[in-house]
């Protein structure tokens, strides 16, 4: 029974990851994006836990806990706390309208499937079949980075990209060593904190965090 449930669980969680990514592109509200990010973090943790239980590796379970804490709780909490503090929670007006953005996401997903099948050396294990989802997440995260105007929304895109990379790592090779995972997670946390401080300074200084206004080049 376990052997039949395992692929279904993997598919479910991978689907959940893709769904949350697509919703992030669709929704313009920053708070909604942050909630989706938290959801995605939890799903990712569940995915890791599933793989860990199936492979029987205790280390992966620890990593899953770490992912849950960092990506599911800590990062969204930091983002949300800062966002609530700022009163003008004006919705993002992206550079791409929602229809076009969803179309782009579809295209990117197709591309990532097309590319992954040709890309070198994917083994035939069950999780590896879901690896294109990770690539699609990376691409969608990049799309968010390019199309969102505000610094904080861009941060969401950056975290989505990071989640995508983590997903690929877990699905193709059962995750990176614990120590490395710890380092990467802390790095991401640090980057987010720094960028948040930066965005805060920006909104104090200019009244908003529209990075389109940052285009003066200096020597």
């Amino acid at each position: 029974m376990v052997e039949t449930v395992y692929p279904q669980l993997i598919g479910l969680f991978a689907g959940g990851l893709l769904l949350t990514s697509v919703l992030m592109v669709w929704r313009h509200s920053l708070l909604a994006s942050i909630r989706l990010l938290a959801t995605q973090g939890i799903i990712l943790a569940a995915l890791v836990a599933t793989i860990g239980m199936h492979e029987g590796e205790a280390e992966l379970l620890v990593v899953s806990g770490l992912v849950l804490v960092v990506k599911g709780v800590a990062l969204p909490w930091v983002l949300a706390r800062q966002s609530r503090a700022t009163t003008h929670m004006a919705d993002e007006s992206p550079r791409l309208n929602p229809t076009a953005a969803l179309l782009a996401v579809a295209l990117l997903t197709i591309l990532s499937y097309a590319v992954s099948s040709r890309l070198a050396g994917l083994n035939a294990s069950i999780p590896a079949h879901a690896a294109p989802i990770g690539l699609a997440m990376v691409l969608v995260g990049f799309l968010l980075l390019v199309t969102r105007r505000r610094a904080r929304s861009q941060l969401v895109g950056f975290l989505l990209l990071d989640n995508g990379i983590a997903t690929i790592a877990f699905l193709t090779s059962g995750g990176v060593p614990l120590l490395l995972e710890l380092g990467v997670s802390l790095d991401v946390l640090l980057v987010v904190l720094i960028l948040y401080a930066f965005a805060g300074r920006m909104s104090n200084k200019f009244g908003n965090t529209d990075i389109d206004q940052l285009r003066e080049l200096h020597d």
Binding site: R95, L139, V146, I211, L214, R215, L217
Partner: peptide, 17 residues
């Protein structure tokens, strides 16, 4: 090279694709 971060990100996105 107009200093817009979006444009630079766009360049790297296109390069990546």
């Amino acid at each position: 090279q107009n200093g817009s971060i979006h444009r630079y990100l766009g360049y790297s996105f296109i390069a990546f694709l």
